[in-house]
């Protein structure tokens, strides 16, 4: 059976920590940094459970700041 491997890149300085990507992710991959902030003081999003990513791009689509890019590999 084919297995999907996904990965996201998040431009940390562009992220405003709005949390919408975290909510949108069906696989609970993303989280906001609990302590660390970017240069503008936002708790930016990061892939906390990156192995669970299926590359569906839901996070990227709802991201208002276009800071997420998505990659996907299907291994047959």
């Amino acid at each position: 059976m084919a297995k999907i491997h996904g990965a996201v890149t998040i431009e940390r300085e562009r992220c405003k920590g709005c949390d919408l990507c975290v909510v949108a992710c069906p696989c609970d991959v993303l989280a906001l940094q609990p302590k660390e902030v970017n240069d503008r003081g936002y708790h930016f999003a990061y892939p906390a459970k990156e192995e669970a990513c299926i590359g569906c791009a839901a996070c990227a689509m709802v991201c208002p700041d276009a800071c997420i890019e998505v990659y996907k590999v299907i291994v047959k």
Partner: peptide
């Protein structure tokens, strides 16, 4: 790559509030 930042979106960080 399956989702890219739109090509015609400028590099400027948008001034809008989070979300």
């Amino acid at each position: 790559k399956v989702y890219s930042r739109p090509r015609l979106l400028d590099d400027n960080i948008m001034h809008y509030c989070p979300g």
